[in-house]
Simulated scan of single mutants.
Amino acid sequence: MFLFAPNAELLVDKNGIIVKINHQVEKLFGYEREELVGKKVEYLIPERIVHTRLIIDKYLRAPVRREMSESKDFLVKRKDGSEFFIEIGLNPIKLENKIFISASIRDVSARVHLVNKLQQSLTAIKNKNKELEQFTYIAAHDLQEPLNTVTGFVELLNEQYKGRLDKNADKYLQFITKASSRMRFLIRGLLDYARIGRERKLSMVDCNKLVTEIQYDFAFSIAETNTTFIIDKLPQVYGCELELSILFQNLISNAIKFRKEGTAPQIKISSEKEGNYWKFSVQDNGIGLAEEHKKKIFIIYQQLNARTEYKGFGLGLAFCQKIVELHGGKIWVDSVPNKGSTFYFTILNSNNL
């Protein structure tokens, strides 16, 4: 059984001397049995890897059972000098009143290589996202100056020439004024979007307190629309209080804004623990949305309804998505047209943000 085990298996004594190996060890490391038996197990470790040698010495002084899943990956070398990563399971056994260590070895080079590539890709994506955010911030900031110039001259034209030119000129000036105003709001929105995640202050945030404060802020809209709330006990989460406030504000604001005609908005906010996350839901009884729009609504500047009917620039849910992702979670929506929507989002229950 030992000789033909599927994993590479070797047996060492309490001094770390290899006393027995199976065929898989010969195949994996490229040595014949006679070349390894009698050698110290450190023979398989590259000389420059001092830390691994110290770990082996420490383990041999107090050997305990250790599963492969509990082990770190170790760098080892073959007979030809090539190096690769292994994971190893260890099991102290007693033979003829002597303690030996049975080691089960598995080549995990492919996995380590894949993890490293994924880490490199993730780092590259993070760097690109950072560059893109910086570009967005700078571009939006620099656009403000020429826009201010255009707006200033349009105001001068309005003051000095309104009614003194033909009717078309007045109408054109009005179009330019409205377009400039809209452009100003779009640039401000872009700047606000780029600012999310910059200079964050992280702390434990009481979500119940946060929602209560938002209700006070929306007191006029709530009274005007007869909005009612059902709010379960919400948890404390680790995050940026300002960002989480913007998240709840946007979801509550949308629930009030996109109400059905003749129906008072009802908003239910609840949460539940799911593994390492808190899952929140914000449910309303509003106009809902169609299946094909469920992903579009999180794209910046996306508006599904006529601007004349519902004011806004399509920024709120894009803000929400960015904030949730910065808190290690995701956001999605379930919705039925004319029945309402439920927005779900998760927040990582950790202080490793």
Rank of each mutant, 00 (worst) to 15 (best):
D284I: 02
K27C: 07
T263K: 09
I256W: 05
L36I: 13
K20H: 13
F313A: 00
F2V: 00
T263H: 04
N127Y: 09
S104Y: 03
Y161R: 12
Q134L: 15
M1R: 07
G189R: 03
D192E: 15
K39L: 10
L251F: 06
A219G: 06
A169E: 02
A290F: 10
R198N: 10
Q303I: 07
K72W: 04
I287R: 03
N250M: 13
N158I: 13
D192R: 15
K79M: 10
S181I: 06
Q302F: 14
L44C: 06
I214D: 00
I267R: 01
I56T: 01
D73Y: 13
K322R: 13
Q302Y: 15
V333M: 10
A264S: 15
S121Q: 08
S109W: 05
I17G: 04
Y43H: 13
V108F: 02
E291Q: 13
K77Q: 13
E96Y: 14
L90G: 06
N97H: 06
I214F: 00
L210D: 04
V41D: 00
F258P: 06
N158E: 12
Q249H: 10
L11M: 15
G328A: 03
Y43G: 10
N305C: 10
F4A: 12
D334W: 06
H141S: 15
R65V: 15
L122P: 05
L132R: 10
N351L: 09
R195S: 14
D57C: 06
G152M: 09
I256Q: 02
K268A: 10
L114V: 09
Q266S: 03
F100M: 02
R195T: 08
E26M: 14
Y277R: 03
K94D: 08
T342P: 04
I86Y: 02
V37A: 00
S82C: 04
S335V: 05
I101Y: 06
Y344T: 02
R53E: 08
L114T: 09
A194F: 07
W278Q: 07
Y161G: 07
S69E: 14
V64I: 15
P235E: 07
K330I: 09
K260E: 11
N168S: 11
D284S: 04
H23Q: 12
I231A: 02
F185N: 12
Y43W: 14
R78E: 06
N127Q: 13
D142W: 08
L90N: 01
H141A: 15
D334V: 08
K268H: 09
S180G: 14
V115M: 13
T342L: 07
T212C: 07
E32W: 04
V25E: 04
Q120R: 11
G197N: 02
K171S: 14
N338W: 09
